[in-house]
Design a binder for these strands. Sequence first.
DNA 1: TTCATATTTCTATATTTATAGATATATAGG
DNA 2: CCTATATATCTATAAATATAGAAATATGAA
Lengths: 111, 111
Amino acid sequence: MNEALSALGALAQETRLEAFRTLIRAGQSGLPAGDIAQRLGVGPTVMSFHLTELSRAGLIGSRREGRSIIYTASFARIGALLDYLIEDCCLGACGTRATNPKESCCEADAR
Amino acid sequence: MNEALSALGALAQETRLEAFRTLIRAGQSGLPAGDIAQRLGVGPTVMSFHLTELSRAGLIGSRREGRSIIYTASFARIGALLDYLIEDCCLGACGTRATNPKESCCEADAR
DNA sequence: TTCATATTTCTATATTTATAGATATATAGG
DNA sequence: CCTATATATCTATAAATATAGAAATATGAA
């Protein structure tokens, strides 16, 4: 139901978070499943499982190229998650944080 | 180890995400555990479990006030998560999205 | 067609996480 | 001190998620 929830769930796992970061850095050309698996040091079965999870959340896409399946990060999807978090979970008050940290509401905390 | 990972895990659950959003909207004054439970329609045991999870991730804090325990959202912590996602998971390209969506990289996928 | 490669799917198992009742702790008021 | 309220902790169980080997599928090359 909630798309942000499934995106959060997909990223809330070490191997998947690393895989996603790797794909973001790889850009639009993406990377074959085997390459990602090798970089992260996991077996093909486990890699496939986690890539499927990320796909189900819409955070990555894939295309076949020869024998390989190339995965690519969805910048739109992570952008939408950021929008949600900024607007619904920080009331917009943290929206400028990355570009202008000094003026952020987030320096002072309520604890 | 990774603080972002535990924050993501804490938010990746419906009851907890709703509880956190409720606390963000409540602001600095916060809300008693029972109030949050009533709003979300969950029992006290389950509420306590999820509030403990959010606390462990540093996303909320608490103080006792009479018989109640008042929980408050940590704007600093959600801000730090946003920073991480923007910088490490979107390469900064989605950082201005909330304030200036038109110029975002995220409109077209795969920047 | 046969073989090797890349990846997924199937299956079983282990681990983690969530739910909920009973009980315990802390506080406030009579 | 006794009682009610607010919440947490303990315990058991259920449900979801992760790991990993074996087998299946798809492709490309000899």
